[in-house]
Amino acid sequence: MNAAEDDGFAAFVAARATSLLRVAYLSCGDEGEAEDLLQTALERAYRNWDRVRYDNPEPYVRRIIVNAAINRARRRAILRMIPMHTPPEPSARETDVDLRHVLMETLRALPPRQRAVVVLRYWEDLSETQTAEVLGCSTGTVKSQASKALAKLRAAIGGESAEGVIRNVHA
C-alpha cells in the first residue's frame, strides 16, 4: 500500500471507527468481541484497500462486521446450546435504565440475523433494501425478521401495551 492509500485508510478509521464499533457491539452484545470484530473487518479492508477505497468503504466494513457477528453467533450455537435469556418480569420496569436493560437483554437473546436486522434498521437507519444488501437476503426476509424481532421486543417490555410502557417511563 502506498502512502496516499495509507492516509486514506487512516482517515477512514479516524472518522468512522467509533460508529462501526457501536454497530459491532450491538450486533454481538459483547464489548470485547465488538473490538475484535471491528479490528478483523478493518484488517480485511486494509488488505483490500486498493480496491475498497474507490467505493465508500463504510458499507463494506459494516457488512463484514454484521455478517461475521452472525456467523460467530451461529458457530457458537452449533458448538454449545446457549441458554436463552429470560426477560425480566415486566412489572419491574419503572426507570429508563431498567427499560434499556430489558431491551438490550432481549436484543442479545434474538437470533443473530434478527438482531442484525434490528441494528441495521433501527440503529443505522438503513432502508429495508439496504439492510437486505448488507445481509445478502431479500427485502421480504428483512421485513419478516424485523417484524418477528419487534414482536419479541414488544413482548419483553410488556406485551401489547409496550408503547404505553415506554410513554409511562417518560411521563
Partner: peptide, 17 residues
C-alpha cells in the same frame, strides 16, 4: 414509538464506546 425508543436506547447503550 417502539422503533424510536429502540434507537434512543441503543444510542444510550453505546454512547460510552
Amino acid at each position: 414509538t417502539l422503533e424510536d425508543e429502540l434507537h434512543r436506547l441503543m444510542g444510550e447503550e453505546t454512547a460510552r464506546l
